[in-house]
Write a protein that binds this DNA or RNA. Structure first.
Length: 538
DNA sequence: GACAGGTTGCGAAA
DNA sequence: TTTCGCAACCTGTC
């Protein structure tokens, strides 16, 4: 190669931790003498945070950190089998990439990375892109994390994202196919020089010592993703008849869904490849389910939330969010902690929260149960608080999808039927009358007879004694009474909706404060009039 | 302005 | 196992 021909490429991995269907990687290889595959470890994301209520960093639970490290190990080994390897560098991602682009030894002429729609990533990437552009480095940043380009769909809809699934699907049409070529070899890594590259660290090397005894049963990486995909698709009848709302949230030995979400989150699995595989199955069976409930429909839900999230400023908060109802949520640290730490006294809710802590994954309907309970169903706590807990602990936590679902479940956007409240007792009972799910994740209740396991506070004392679980001592009493709490939530939601309707989307801080006052006054008044009646009766 | 339709509520009644 | 009342929400479309 000539001395001034900058024919080396830097492939920046962030999400998209895969070899298959990776257009940025393909482009990075084309005409490159050397290829530098880089992943930047961000200390802010990884550093142990002893003040957090469960193991992990401030931003991520240990399960997701572990999943990411496994994905990196797998990526490195795949790169090695193609004659390359993964260069791991520590530091602030944008700063690190800019530093590497400046290195004389690397002599980078082309920077390739997958386009990322998240606000955090947009800021980070434009910093790097700006530097590359003024330095005369070619930048290639294709959309390949999603089936569609969110920007295109928003444009097709006149500049605003569609706010219903149906209108989204109509607008979106057919997704693009995955790349058909597979890479058989990669250009070699050139002289690394002063870049201070590492190999993928272990969880212990990151400073984590006390690894919990039960942890996520899902291993990270592209190989694992493709294996899991193949396994899921083997049962063609199951794939063809899949209907999301009918799954069993209490199934944990064999989950009722594919559990491919963590792999989609990190891009270990290409959504476009997944979609194509599903189409192949559908083409080979007589009858199959359709969106929104089908498996392919689930991938379209992902697209829907990515699109709305990309086109909605302040999507991850209530304030200044065009599509979010303004609701006077309570701020109760005690109740929030009880929910987060699985001590609400409702075994179904607590078991789900334990599964979140231990596995970093729960069934979709289980997520609904606890999200509804925290917000509009029982505790009336701000959905942003619950969102934070999920965002940190879920192995599959995905910015657009997580925020979208919290908006949905709290009846702040997309879904508005706030009278439909999940029961923290009977909902789980429908699927698991014996309470096996509770017995596994809340073992203190393992000997509670099934008649009482969903409402252990109703068990006679002799039953509690026999089960070695005294309610109020070994396991908490319910933090709220569901009947009255949910009634109260309905009342508040009704008042908040009325206010949002009257003010036509311009509810401000002061309006919420006065609504909160009014709601409290009404509650006190009701209480007093009830007491009056009681006095009259007696 | 009316109307149709909305992945996933509950509990009672048939 | 399906259907209904509950009380009445929203967006997209005409």
């Amino acid at each position: 190669m000539g001395s001034n021909s900058k024919s080396n490429a830097l492939m920046w991995f962030r999400k998209g931790l895969r070899i298959h269907d990776n257009p940025a990687l393909h482009h990075a290889c084309e005409g490159s003498a050397h290829l530098y595959p880089v992943f930047v470890l961000d200390p802010y994301y990884l550093e142990p945070d002893p003040t957090s209520s469960s193991p992990g960093s401030a931003r991520s639970g240990l399960n997701r950190i572990q999943f990411m490290l496994e994905s990196l190990v797998d990526l490195d080994s795949s790169l090695r089998s193609l004659g390359s390897r993964l260069l791991v560098v520590k530091g602030d991602p944008a700063d690190v990439i800019i530093r590497l682009l400046k290195l004389k030894e690397w002599n980078i002429g082309k920077l390739c990375f997958e386009f990322d729609t998240e606000p955090y990533s947009q800021v980070r990437d434009s910093k790097v892109k700006d530097f590359a552009t003024i330095s005369g480095i070619e930048v290639f940043s294709p959309v390949s994390h999603t089936l569609f380009n969110p920007a295109e769909i928003i444009q097709k809809n006149g500049g605003k994202p569609p706010l219903t699934y149906q209108s989204f699907v109509k607008l979106a049409g057919q997704p693009l196919s995955p790349l058909s070529q597979t890479l058989t070899s990669l250009p070699p890594v050139g002289n690394v020089g002063d870049a201070e590259t590492l190999s993928v660290p272990t969880i212990e090397e990151l400073g984590y010592r006390d690894i919990q005894e039960e942890f996520s049963p899902f291993r990270g990486g592209e190989s694992e993703a493709l294996k899991r995909l193949k396994e899921s698709l083997k049962d063609k009848v199951w794939v063809a008849n899949f209907e999301k709302p009918k799954g069993d949230p209490s199934a944990f030995l064999k989950p009722a869904t594919t559990v491919l979400s963590p792999y989609l989150k990190f891009g270990c699995l290409s959504s476009r490849y997944f979609y194509q595989c599903l189409k192949d199955v559908y083409n080979n069976v007589k009858r199959h389910t359709s969106p929104p409930v089908s498996l392919a429909g689930q991938l379209l839900w992902r697209e829907f939330f990515y699109t709305v999230a990309y086109g909605t400023p302040n999507f991850d908060q209530m304030r200044e969010n065009r599509i979010c109802k303004q609701i006077p949520w309570d701020d109760d640290e005690e109740l929030l902690a009880a929910w987060r730490e699985a001590r609400t006294g409702y075994p179904w809710i607590d078991a789900i929260m334990v599964q979140l802590q231990k596995w970093g994954w729960m069934h979709h309907l289980a997520r609904h149960s606890v999200a509804c309970f925290l917000t509009r169903g029982d505790l009336f706590i701000h959905w942003e608080r619950g969102r934070d807990v999920f965002e940190r602990l879920l192995v599959d936590s995905d910015w657009a999808i997580n925020n979208g679902n919290w908006l949905w479940l709290s009846c702040s956007s997309f879904f508005y039927q706030y009278n439909r409240i999940y029961s923290p007792t009977t909902f789980g009972k429908k699927y698991d009358p014996n309470g096996n799910y509770i017995r596994h994740f809340v073992p203190i209740l393992k000997d509670m007879p099934k008649e009482y396991i969903y409402e252990p506070w109703t068990a006679p004392l002799r039953v509690q004694t026999k089960a070695n679980c005294i309610i109020g001592r070994d396991y908490p009493k319910p933090v709220v009474a569901h009947d009255s709490a949910s009634k109260e939530c309905r009342r508040k939601m009704g008042a908040a909706y009325a206010l949002n309707h009257t003010m036509d989307g311009s509810v401000g801080e002061e309006d919420l404060r006065s609504l909160r006052r009014k709601l409290e006054e009404d509650a006190t008044h009701d209480f007093k009039s009830r007491s009056q009646k009681q006095k009259l009766i007696h």
